[in-house]
Design a protein around this nucleic acid. Structure first.
Length: 600
RNA sequence: GGGGUCGUAGUUCAGUUUGGUUAGAACGCCGGCCUGUCACGCCGGAGGUCGCGAGUUCGAGUCUCGUCGGCCCCGCCA
């Protein structure tokens, strides 16, 4: 019975995994291996909770085996051991009903220490008590915890389920390059210097967009890929510099086919992974409708609190502030919160902070009770005006009207934020529900800061047929075959029908200020491909990390990625990014002009 | 680029408002006792660059300035 074994011997090959044992194994001789979670010494008797990915099992040694007992007493949390022993039923009053294997225990006969562990920097336990930076520094210990084990297992099952569904539907999984040509527009690129081509750079792909369209030209009419996408932008709890997309593209289809296959994919994976039966089809809403009713392009439909417009009430009211706003082509909109009728001044102040942070000038809160309004401007509204206001919000009897006036986009945004805040703050989301919807008909172009036009989504999306004529004259009014899949206020995916004719693609380029020469230089290969029999096509990309997060009920995608980055895009475990030896830089024809390069 | 918040034993925190004796608690760790524990129990012990650097002060965990780092958010993310 060795103290420590450097080389793992075949006599310790496991017969079972810890969490697999149960009463039916009683009497069986077993070989187990795993991590020591907890040592409980009781004088002449020592218990150990032995852990592996499948669960915990109690193993036990008493003093009759003196040497083995001494070994057991030397063990500490996170030591790795293997042992042989016999499964036995616990006495009935010793059964632990909180443990999957609580009916039995293993009486150990032989054991070996495979590795000792330092005292871990934090306790490796389900309800971890450590800050996230420490957990990230020792990610392998954090990942050893049950919640993260389950999250990565969920992610695995999810990816597997996606593949199974799409294989069955006849989609081909095709990989595309990681070293790609940089294309302008969109997010900041990660660049990779070329050694063989001095002064030139590859980019890491923000998405496989151009490649999947090229694959459509090549005739792979049903393509998918579980693809890594890299964007050098600032991070959030739902945004990492590298994330994984379920990237799908198909030919000879309309929007309807994409909606249909995506909905059935969602139904299949939610059924399989979380046992939830999604109702199909998902509701659909145009972009203007979403902005008008919910103040956002990704509304959370788990609760109501719709935004209503009450501008016309104030046209001929005595309430000067709102009157001047609507006379200046602004708008007055609001939300009815029935539960808010008893809100304190302080609670209302909290809500005002929310809308102000979103850019609104202020918040007018109007209490309604028994069909009468009270508050700052009750005296400015006539009986007719009051009735009009109440009917705009379908006020039953009582409630709190939260009104914001100003320019349309600011008002929408502020009320959208307020609506989400109310949903969170007053827990209106309900339990574990998944409210999907499609938001579509996004505008193709938005005004840029410099006054020109830029693509709202991406440059390859098809304009609506009826808007084609206005591409040059009135770009702002052109809608696209563009759609986002939204669940519980989170954007889970987005896609479009693509342009597949060179001429139309060039017209779109020219609206956003890319002339023919530039287009040729930047996207020449795609435009050229369009000239050799490009089929009509379109697709969608779904965020795998976010889907995993929403399925697992988590608050951050970091918990569903094995090795995530911090908010400043570093990895605390291995210390990336890092400086490199100057010789390497020479080879890459690169000179660093800022900061020092200490290594090398 | 900006706003907020946090940083004190190995860990999680208290102490900072109002500067003042030897910086505390729980868990963990170390030693001892204990035959049915499973949050084991009991007795004892060790453990601190109060993130880092300046400054103010007789005196700084506490006040000021700077800086580093984690998290949340705005901008950004076709």
């Amino acid at each position: 019975m060795g103290e420590l074994s450097y080389v793992f011997g075949k006599e310790w090959i496991r017969t079972h995994r810890c969490g697999e044992l149960n009463g039916r194994d009683t009497g069986a001789g077993v070989v187990l291996a795993g991590w020591v979670k907890k040592v409980r010494e009781l004088g002449f008797l020592t218990f150990i909770d032995l852990w592996d990915r499948t669960g915990l099992v109690q193993i036990v040694v008493d003093e009759k085996q003196a040497e083995l007992h001494r070994l057991f007493r030397s063990l500490r949390s996170e030591d790795v051991i293997a042992c042989t022993g016999t499964v036995r039923k616990r006495p009935s009053d010793m059964i632990n009903p909180d443990m999957k294997t609580g009916e039995i225990e293993v009486e150990v006969e032989r054991a070996v220490v495979l590795n000792r562990s330092e005292v871990p920097p934090f306790t490796v336990t389900t309800d971890v008590q450590a800050n996230e930076d420490l957990r990230l520094r020792y990610r392998y210990l954090d990942l050893r915890r049950d919640p993260l084990q389950r999250n990565l297992e969920l992610r695995h099952n999810l990816a597997f389920s996606v593949r199974k569904f799409l294989f069955d539907e006849g989609y081909l999984e095709i990989e595309t390059p990681m070293l790609v040509r940089r294309t302008p527009e969109g997010a900041r690129d990660y660049l990779v210097p070329s050694r063989l081509q001095p002064g030139k750079f590859y980019a890491l792909p923000q998405s496989p967009q151009l490649y999947k369209q090229t694959l459509m030209v090549a005739g792979f009419d049903r393509y998918f890929q579980i693809a890594r996408c890299l964007r050098d932008e600032d991070l959030r709890s739902d945004r990492q510099p590298e994330h994984t997309q379920i990237d799908i593209e198909m030919s000879f289809i309309t929007e309807e086919e994409i909606f249909d296959v995506t909905e059935r994919l969602m139904r299949a994976i939610f059924q399989e992974i979380v046992g939830e039966e999604l109702q199909l089809p998902f509701p659909r809403m145009t972009f203007p409708e979403a902005m008008g009713r919910f103040g956002t392009d990704k509304p959370d439909l788990r609760f109501g609190l719709e935004i209503r417009d009450c501008s016309k009430t104030f046209f001929d009211s005595e309430f000067r502030l709102f009157r001047s706003i609507v006379e200046a082509d602004g708008t007055v909109r609001g939300i009815l919160l029935e539960e808010g009728v008893a809100f304190s001044r302080r609670q209302i102040g909290e809500l005002e902070e929310v809308v102000k942070a979103a850019g609104a000038g202020g918040l007018a809160a109007v209490k309604v009770e028994g069909g009468a309004i009270s508050g700052p401007f009750s005296k400015y509204l006539s009986g007719e005006g009051t009735r009009e206001l109440l009917s705009a919000f379908d006020v039953k009897d009582r409630g709190l009207l939260l009104l914001v006036g100003g320019e349309e986009p600011v008002v929408s945004k502020a009320l959208g934020e307020l609506r989400n805040y109310l949903g969170r703050r007053y827990r209106l989301e309900g339990g574990r529900r998944y409210n999907f919807l499609w938001v579509n008909r996004f505008p193709l172009f938005v005004q840029s800061d410099e006054g020109g036009w830029e693509p709202a989504h991406h440059i390859f999306s098809m304009p609506l047929e009826e808007d084609l004529g206005r591409v040059e004259e009135d770009p702002g009014s052109v809608r696209g075959y563009l759609y986002d899949l939204v669940c519980n206020g989170i954007e889970l995916g987005s896609g479009s029908i693509r342009i597949h004719h060179r001429e139309l693609q060039e017209r779109i380029f020219s609206v956003i200020g890319i002339d023919k020469a530039q287009a040729e230089r930047k996207f020449g290969f795609l435009l050229e491909a369009f000239q050799y029999g490009a089929p009509p096509h379109g697709g969608i990309a779904l965020g795998l990390d976010r889907i995993a997060m929403i399925m697992g009920g988590g608050a951050s995608i970091r918990d569903y990625i094995a090795f995530p980055k911090t908010q400043r895009a570093t990895s605390l475990m291995e210390g990336a990014p890092s400086e490199v030896e100057s010789g390497l830089l020479d080879e890459l024809h690169i000179r660093v002009t800022k900061g020092k390069n200490k290594e090398g």
